[in-house]
Amino acid sequence: MKIAIASGKGGTGKTTLSTNLATFLGETKRVVLADLDVEEPNSKLFIDAQILKTHDTFKMIPRWVSQACTQCAQCVEVCNYNALIHIANEILVFPNLCHSCYACSELCPTQALPMEPQKMGELTHWRSDWIDGVEGRLNIGEEQAVSLISQTKKYVEKYFGDDTVKIYDAPPGTSCPMVEAIKDVAFVILITEPTPFGLHDLKLAVETVRAVGKAFGVVINQHGIGNDAVLDYCRAEAIDIIAKIPHDRAVAMAYARGELAYRSVAGFKEALRDVVAFCEAKGLL
């Protein structure tokens, strides 16, 4: 089963929940944690892991072959992203603006722009005492996160069978990368804080998850620090509250030290048990 952990904005505790939940489940089950927050993959920072292998990931971009080019510059006109420019008898390609649509390459009358793989990031497979992890990491300045997320998911599906619980740490926000990360999971756990910012961003995330058509529920992080507006909203919208992680300075301190909080904070472990019980009742585990 695949379960995604997502949030409308960064910093609400998404990585905290996914690393703790995956390891807690890993004590009794086979678990793989896929870090799909490829712009800031941080989950490995919190887990004592050994890297099994790392390989480069690629995207396809056009390479200009000067001998074949007739300088018609139709490619520049075709590109809707301004990724190609014609100056002084040269075609320059800007890989970070390219969306790999192939239009320039396939419409070039003299085949002067063959598509070739270029490194866009890295995929790492690691293992701790309790779980496996797969992390996609996008190169700095690279903007096409969606393709790397899709490649990371493919790796997970290829190497882990149905007997393994798959936890996806999704990128924050409501745009294409988040949609890509959740589009084939069985269930989405949205994590939020009981504050006006948390509620506002939760509403956007709910709108997105509903647009994609996924079953979902909410975990409230730092419960007790804010107000009841998130609870009231979930009640009014008939959204399941899966668990409430209590507000506790000890959780923040464990995070700051790069440690898993459930091992030292009893209230946090209680909340994880609630998540597991909920998932079992839903037939997700």
Partner: peptide
Amino acid sequence: EAHGAGPKMAKVLLD
């Protein structure tokens, strides 16, 4: 332009 406004202006400057 949604993307690539910079390179486009650079080309103008060169032209």
